[in-house]
Structure formats: structure tokens, C-alpha cells
Design a protein around this nucleic acid. Structure first.
Lengths: 340, 340
DNA sequence: TTGAAAGCGCTAACAC
DNA sequence: GTGTTAGCGCTTTCAA
């Protein structure tokens, strides 16, 4: 049977309050401190979190609901977040909802029942309906990577400036003379796909060039998807002279398709990829990439949640934080002569 | 303020015990059942898990400690496990220890303090020392993918028959006449690398051919690692006629290296990869692969833990379960004429 | 089947 | 700084 604070009290002759205070970092006479520490060791005392939680109504646990675990952008964020939160003694319960709204709702409910102190969500559902139980329970929420309009003011969010990211990349290619730029996006219903598409179109508007619909391929943020989309682009009668791919997995798939087609980058086709500079550095060195600040995102999400957790419920200040991306210029694009 | 069972008692005029019984699936007079259900809805009652846990000493939470989250084999197992465990109302706390023994120890401690009911671990530390706190606390443990000899009898484990997997693949190549088979492994200190190396060498022994040391490349189970290892193999004065790569990420990296070197599979070189048949099916169709039963592993781990959780502490029956792999024969290998 | 009551192990208000 | 004490909201005897 595990020992309790009562046992420590008995062994040290001290009162429960003193021990509790010590356990929670309060000031205790040095003599007693030593006494308690010895007793803790002897009895192998581990504070009972259940009792503590019952008393404080705090689980020191946060829930994370994501669409897919097998995606490098998502896992990189989770790793950073988990690290930071654990340092603050929060456990992280991860729920993968497989990009399924129903599962997502269930996951949120589940976490509310588990009485998590906070919730982090990269939403699948567009309406935000799934978050209602958490909202009602007064659980602070931080959205990651995707904003939910109906939730404005009710939750915090950490997103990336996707419009700008895509605009910069497209702009860069257009300045080099490209007019037929293939764009490979995620699913059409996803926030980031829409924003990246918007940025791409902005650049076309800016250059006063009409975009070609068939160059815009909605895919699914997987390697297979990127591979297939690139093949389609290459099969076009009027093939693009440059391609911009908008996540890590699809970039990989697209590069493989290019490799297979024996097209040389940048001689045969210009290419801008996405994310994970270090990996591409090793395998496809010199790739021009849009780099999302993955580490900063995870850190920012954790910081935001920690802040909300520290605030009393009534005065929570929700914020939307937009992080900038960076266009890492490598050598995978080159200028083309404009048709004269 | 959240409502409690007391509120329900007041509203329905019933006793606490009746309500508790209903909540735990006991039999209650239909009239009262309706009464309670209505009250639950009206008060938006959510049982307080803290109080329940305090009373039962059960958290309905399991901890998972893994070396890296960004690895498809690991995430695929986690996804399956999490799914099954959540169906049984267990929350899953995932701790990534970045293949670092110290972090791994800390993670186990952390989870013990959080009073998880069970622990799942893909171990980084070879000694099993890190599991001691869990063992002492009487928390059942299931090891995944890697056995720890010193833990024999104290924990359950679900592993794959790695020796057989590697032997089968190597054997298959040798039967086709290959004698110079490149082998790309994970880190030398890792259980699975050792076993797969053993299987490879077994095949050489069987065919009575002396293995060439320089064909065996210990790497790190990453894409970059597979890519680099393959490049090294290709740079050898006497290049292998076939290559066997022993995880998903390295297979991907190795295939890219092959693509880049413009070597055609299987005409220029025979190739056997690892895992994730569906992905390779889409991008590198027809690849011959060793397929681990990823889904079955996750399922088996969850089942084992659930079984241990159901047993009273004293009578826990630990088992080591070894799952078979499958050699999926595609068209990425071909026979070679033996030098006559 | 139902109700009354004890108590899980901790925290925090209060008195000293 | 320390001790006493009253719960937090459940589950679970036990008696009815």
C-alpha cells in the first residue's frame, strides 16, 4: 500500500498542513524540511494526484486533438508542445481524430470528461461545434494552424501567415519570369489550403496575369497525394515551368515524381517546396523552400495555453497570433526568358 | 459551478447510492432511471473523475513512452493503440524521449506520479532501469518492438520476429543468386537492428557464403540515414547487386538515392524494402517488402495491457508475444547469373 | 432495489 | 511556521 501524508505526519511528528505546505513549495523550518525529506524517502511517498485534483479541481493535464498523427508538421508541433508542457508538470493526452468530425467531437467530449485543464486543437470541423462542450466547461482552448471564424474571441489561436507565404513564393517565381506555376495544395476544405491558394492568386493579380485553373491541384497533404498531383501537372499539354508544393509530405512525393520523370531541377523545371529544411538539406540540397517556424509554433501554443491556464477564468484574454514564414532561397528555381 | 451527484439526489429525491449505481451501469428501477437521466441532462452533470479516481485508485489513463514521435512505424502503432484504449475509456499520455535514456527515465517517473494505470514502452535504455519506479508502484508494463532481457517475467512484450524477417529477405535474394547484398540497419545498439543483422548473417551461413562487412551499414532509421547509407553502398568498389533496407524511412531515402544515381530497380540493382506497403504501392509500385503487421502490433499491445489491467495485481501473467512478418514479393528483385 | 454514512488523501482556512 | 479541521465528490459497505 502506498504511503500518504498522514504516514509522514506520524513519522515526523509534524502536522498535515506543514507537510502539505512543503510539498507545494512553501517555507518550512530547515529542520523540519530535512525531517520530511527523510520520511518521504523512507516511505517512498508519492503524492496522490487524485486527492490533489479533487481538492483543487485541476488535473494538470491538457488534451490535444489533431487530425492525423502521421504528419511531420503535426508531430513536430506536438513534440515541442509536449516538451514545454511537461516541464510545467502538465501531462498531454493526444487524440488523433483521423480528419473525421465525428471522431473529433468524441475526442473533445472524452477530454472534457477527463477534466483536462486546457485543450489544444488543430480543427477538422469547420464550424467549431465540436468545441462547445469544452467551452461550456470553461476549459481554455488554443487552436493551432487553422482559425475557426465562429470561435473568434472565445479561443486563442496560433497560425501562420499562409497568404503571405504563398504570395511570397509565387511572387518570387513570377519575378523570375514564370507565368505557368503549378500549385499543389491540401484538401480544398482546409483552412491552410484556402489561404495558400489565396496567396498564390494574389501574386497573379499583382502581376496582372490570368491564373490557369488546371495548374491548381487540390490534393491531401500526403506523399502519395503530392506524387500523384505532380504527375498530373507533368501530363498537362502545357506543362508548368515551375511548381510550388505546400507541405512536407507532398514536397517529398513531388520530388520523387520529378526524379522519376528524369526532370532536372531547376534546369527542366523550377521548384519551391515546403517545411523541414534540414531533411531536404540532406537529400535534396539546395531546394528553395517556404519554411514554417515549426518550433516556434509549438512553443507559442504551449505558452499561450500556459498563460490562459494561469489566468482566472473570468479574465482570460484570448489572442490570435500569426507567425511569419520564411522563404529560404536555394537553387531549385531559375529564371526563364519571357516569350517576346 | 459544475453539478454533483448530490444535486441529482436532491432533484430526484433519490439517495446517492442509487445514483452512483446507475452511473456505474447497475440496475435501477426504470422509473428512477428516467428520473436520473432527466436530472443529468438538466444539470449537465459530468461525473467527477477526480473523486472517482481517489476512491478507486484508478486513473483510467495509460502512459506511453517512445523514442521518437516522428517515425511512421511508431506513430502507426500509437494510433491503433490509442484508438483501442480510448474505446475502453482509457486516456493515453504520450511521452517522446528523443531516444535519450535520461529523458526516458524522467518520463516514466512522471507517469508514475500521474498514477497511470498501465505503461507502454518502446525502450531506449537497454538495462530496463528506467522501468523500476513503475514496477515498484505495481504498474503493469507492456514493452513494444524491443525486448529487455533483464525485465523477463516482470513485463509483457509484443515484438516481431526480426531474425526471421531478415533471414527470409536475405534468403530470397540469395536464392536468386545474389551474394553481395547490402544491408542497411538502424543504430547498432538497438534491439531490432541486432536481430535483423542476425537474420541476415544466418542466411549467409546457410548458403555458406562469407558475408562482407562493408556491405552491412548501421544507420539511424531516418530517411537521411537511409539515403546516406545507400550512397555509401553505391560508392563501394565492389557494389552490392542487391540491397535490403530495414525500415520505412530508410527505404524511402534509399530509393531516392537510387533514383538519383539513375539506377533502375531491378535491372541495375535488386531491392527489398520495409513496411508501409500501401505507400510504396502508390509511389514505388511493385517493391518487394518485408511487411511488419503494424496494425496487429498496436492491437496486440492494447489487448495485452487491457488484460493486465483487468487482472488483480497478484496474478498477472506476463507474456512475450512474437508476431510474424511477411515477405511481400513484388518485382524489385531479379535473379543474377552466378559467376561460373 | 434503495438510503445513510464512512472515508479515499489531499488542500486551505483558521487559530495559535 | 505549525497544527487542527472541514470538506472536495465520489464509491461502497451495511442495513432496511
Amino acid at each position: 500500500m502506498a504511503s500518504t501524508m498522514k504516514d509522514i505526519a506520524r513519522l515526523t511528528g509534524l502536522g498535515l498542513a506543514t507537510i502539505s505546505k512543503y510539498m507545494n513549495g512553501g517555507t518550512v523550518r530547515p529542520k523540519n524540511k530535512k525531517l520530511i525529506e527523510d520520511a518521504v524517502k523512507e516511505l517512498r511517498f508519492i503524492p496522490n494526484e487524485f486527492a490533489r485534483s479533487l481538492k483543487t479541481s485541476l488535473s494538470r493535464t491538457v488534451g490535444v486533438v489533431i487530425p492525423e498523427l502521421g504528419n511531420q508538421f503535426i508531430t513536430s508541433i506536438i513534440i515541442t508542445m509536449e516538451d514545454m508542457l511537461r516541464k510545467h508538470d502538465y501531462a498531454v493526452i493526444v487524440c488523433d481524430c483521423r480528419t473525421d468530425s465525428k471522431r473529433e467531437s468524441e475526442a473533445v467530449s472524452f477530454l472534457v470528461h477527463k477534466r483536462v485543464d486546457g485543450l489544444i486543437n488543430m480543427p477538422t470541423d469547420q464550424s467549431g461545434e465540436h468545441l462547445k462542450p469544452a467551452l461550456e466547461a470553461g476549459i481554455p482552448i488554443v487552436l493551432v494552424d487553422r482559425m475557426l471564424k465562429p470561435m473568434n474571441g472565445l479561443v486563442s489561436a496560433v497560425v501562420v501567415d499562409n497568404v503571405d507565404a504563398a504570395e511570397k513564393a509565387t511572387h518570387y517565381l513570377m519575378e523570375a519570369g514564370h507565368e505557368d506555376i503549378g500549385l499543389i495544395l491540401g484538401n480544398e476544405s482546409i483552412f491552410t489550403s484556402q489561404k495558400r491558394c489565396e496567396g498564390y492568386l494574389n501574386a497573379y493579380t499583382e502581376f496582372n496575369i490570368p491564373p490557369r485553373d488546371e495548374l491548381i491541384r487540390f490534393s491531401d497533404y500526403t506523399m502519395e497525394g503530392g506524387y500523384a498531383a505532380m504527375k498530373r501537372l507533368l501530363a498537362l499539354p502545357k506543362r508548368p515551368t515551375a511548381v510550388f508544393v505546400t507541405n512536407f509530405e507532398m514536397t517529398l512525393g513531388a520530388m520523387i515524381a520529378l526524379n522519376e520523370a528524369q526532370l532536372k531541377v531547376p534546369d527542366d523545371i523550377s521548384f519551391i517546396g515546403f517545411d523541414k529544411l534540414d531533411l531536404f538539406g540532406a537529400i535534396f540540397p539546395n531546394l528553395t523552400l517556404v519554411k514554417q517556424p515549426q518550433y516556434a509554433i509549438g512553443e507559442c501554443v504551449a505558452t499561450q495555453l500556459l498563460r490562459l491556464l494561469a489566468d482566472p477564468h473570468a479574465e482570460r484574454q484570448h489572442q490570435i497570433i500569426t507567425l511569419a514564414t520564411q522563404l529560404h532561397v536555394g537553387g531549385s528555381t531559375r529564371g526563364i526568358r519571357k516569350p517576346s
